[in-house]
Simulated assay, not measured.
Amino acid sequence: MLRKDKIRVVVADGQPVTVLGLQTWFETRERYRVVASATCEEQLLSKLRDADGELVIVGCALGAHARPAADQFGILRKLRECVPHTPLVALTTDSRTLAVRAMQRAGADGIASTRDDLKDLGRVCERVLSGVKGVISPRIAAGLESERRNAQAFHPDTIYREVRLSATTLAARM
């Protein structure tokens, strides 16, 4: 059965130009309608109460200046509390494994890079809307794979075997 109404999307990012770009891109798609947008955390949380969105796309840097570094993805936790059953896609520049896992634990159903093509963001949104959890964009996946390869390349027995010195050898050289 095909939907007759458009999917209601809420977009938020700390950069107004990013919000405008997301609004424009989603509005030009037949399937979506942007029902709310925000450029700060407080604005987003107040608009969410009235927006009745079916998908939230948020830049992870939104409100980061007001949070301690240890709570880097607090906005995702707040959104998960505010709209617990609404699919949530996080936009980020960080593709490190620890950061991706932290975003997923904080409540992101999908993660896309701010450097992704918009068609890749669209694919992440489609998969998240279909109920899939843990969706990542190709650029985020490539970053994770690169980090994994670099971690495997470091092996202390092979890289530093020739550099190891015993304490007595080191003391004798001084």
Rank of each mutant, 00 (worst) to 15 (best):
G131A: 07
L62N: 12
D52A: 09
D5W: 02
E147L: 12
R33G: 15
L62Q: 03
Y32L: 08
A102I: 02
G134F: 09
V100C: 03
T158G: 09
V132P: 11
R77T: 08
K133N: 10
C82H: 07
L22C: 14
P156T: 01
S37T: 10
G14E: 03
K47G: 14
V35R: 15
K119C: 08
S130H: 11
A51W: 06
A172P: 07
T169S: 04
A106T: 02
N150P: 14
V19E: 04
E126F: 07
A38I: 11
S130E: 15
A167S: 13
A151N: 11
H155N: 13
V17H: 07
V83A: 09
M103W: 06
T24L: 13
P16L: 02
S37H: 02
P84I: 02
G59D: 02
P84W: 09
E81S: 14
G74K: 14
L121D: 01
R149Y: 12
R3F: 07
Q43K: 05
Q15I: 02
V35P: 15
K119G: 11
R31D: 10
S137Q: 08
S137E: 01
G63E: 07
G63Y: 03
H85M: 07
A153E: 11
S95K: 07
A112S: 10
L22N: 13
P84K: 04
T114S: 12
Q72V: 00
H65L: 10
D157N: 15
C60Q: 05
T92P: 15
E30I: 04
K47P: 12
R164C: 12
K133P: 14
D117A: 11
E145V: 11
D13S: 00
V11R: 06
R127P: 00
E126P: 13
Q152G: 13
D71I: 06
T18Q: 15
V100I: 04
R115K: 06
I111A: 01
L88A: 07
R164K: 13
Y160R: 12
R77I: 06
G14W: 04
R173I: 05
C82T: 07
R127V: 00
Q104S: 13
L129F: 01
V11T: 05
E81K: 08
A70K: 06
L48D: 07
V10M: 08
S137C: 01
M1Q: 15
G14S: 12
L44A: 03
V100E: 01
E42D: 08
A64C: 03
G21K: 05
L129M: 00
A106W: 04
H155Y: 14
